[in-house]
């Protein structure tokens, strides 16, 4: 059996305890939420923590609620707040998520397989490490290769002569949360901060998150749709080898709002599983404004806009030209998925 290297284990019962442990151990610590990403990476020697901090006993990090609304009976003007340790299985089927951000439910449901989603958490998925065909392998394998930029090495096997790691963000929910403009709440012994998820990721595959070693993601907050809107929509489409278990070969999320006559007044399109940062495609709102989400020509234009700026690399298994060609197809499917599960 592939065994883990020794480490100490701590299991805080509260956020305060957790951040105190982080403050104490800093870079020597590794947080573990559901474990579905961290544990395989530990087994592959990608991390060498002295202490693993398990968050499963921190009850205050679980749960889904609306905050700050209350005017509308259906809560449509509240902020959807999801505890970081809420499992993906809970997210995918929770009535509030289905009502307020159906695309998030779709994205959560497309993560891995059912058992991984029962274990895995939304916070864990947001903090998922980047992936690359040259990195997610055993220590023996990576050593035989001479290692790489992301861990222990100095070369990139994807980009000849590359100096910065291009391992890809592969978290399904992050793509959708970027489209929705979600905010992350981050705690440390030093205090609390909120950061827009679009600013959370940085273009470095070696570590693509702006998270200090003493910090803990506690909440994911999805903003209320703007009051002027007639309706808000979100949808997700994922390209993968199998219909279960697999990480995305292409991850596409859309979110838009319509005015009172059904015309698009704002739209966001995000493409991920390409590089270290989920990419918010520029110019989408301008292209879409005034159009209709069931207009194939418009959707095709949006898809083409995304395709133009999406350059897949060999960091992920699968023909790069084909993956690029699939961008408009999956943009279309994300729109279709959104329209299948409309909100009020």
């Amino acid at each position: 059996m592939l065994r883990l290297e020794p480490f100490a284990f701590a299991r805080p019962g509260s956020v305060d305890e957790a951040v105190a442990l982080l403050a104490k151990h800093g870079r020597a610590a590794r947080l573990i939420a559901g474990g579905t990403d961290v544990m395989p990476n530990l087994k592959h020697g990608l991390y060498e923590p002295e202490v693993v901090i398990g968050l499963s006993a921190v009850a205050e990090l679980r749960g889904i609620a609306l905050e700050g609304g209350g005017a509308a009976a259906n809560g449509s003007d509240g902020e959807l707040v999801i505890g970081a340790m809420t499992t993906l299985a809970e997210v995918e089927s929770h009535p509030l998520v289905l009502a307020r951000a159906p695309g998030l439910a779709q994205a959560a449901r497309s993560v891995a397989g059912p058992t991984q989603r029962t274990m895995g958490t939304l916070g864990g998925n947001v903090c998922l490490d980047t992936r690359c065909v040259w990195i997610n392998q055993s220590h023996f394998w990576r050593k035989s290769l001479g290692y790489c930029l992301k861990k222990d090495g100095t070369v990139c096997h994807v980009v000849q002569g590359g100096k910065s790691c291009v391992a890809a963000a592969s978290n399904d929910t992050a793509t959708l949360l970027c489209a929705l403009g979600a905010t992350l709440v981050i705690r440390s012994a030093r205090g609390v901060r909120a950061v827009a998820i679009r600013d959370f990721y940085k273009p470095d595959g070696a570590m693509n998150q702006r998270l200090e070693p003493d910090e803990l993601l506690t909440q994911i907050r999805v903003p209320a749709p703007r009051r002027s809107s007639g309706a808000s929509w979100s949808g997700y489409a994922k390209l993968r080898a199998r219909n279960s278990i697999d990480f995305p070969k292409l991850s596409i999320a859309v979110a838009w709002t319509t005015d009172r006559v059904g015309a698009i007044d704002d739209a966001t399109l995000v493409v991920s599983a390409i590089a270290a940062v989920p990419r918010v495609i520029a110019g989408i709102a301008d292209l879409a404004r005034g159009g209709r989400a069931d207009d194939p020509a418009l959707i095709a234009r949006l898809g083409e806009q995304a395709r133009k700026v999406t350059i897949p690399l060999t960091n992920i298994d699968g023909d790069t030209g084909w993956r690029r060609a699939m961008v408009p197809v999956f943009v279309k499917r994300a729109f279709a998925a959104a329209r299948m599960a409309t909100t009020g």
Binding site: V133, N136, Q137, R242, N243, S244, D317
Partner: peptide, 12 residues
């Protein structure tokens, strides 16, 4: 060389 990358069919 693992059962994530060597994709054998799942139930779905």
């Amino acid at each position: 060389p693992n059962l994530l990358d060597y994709t054998i069919p799942t139930s779905v």
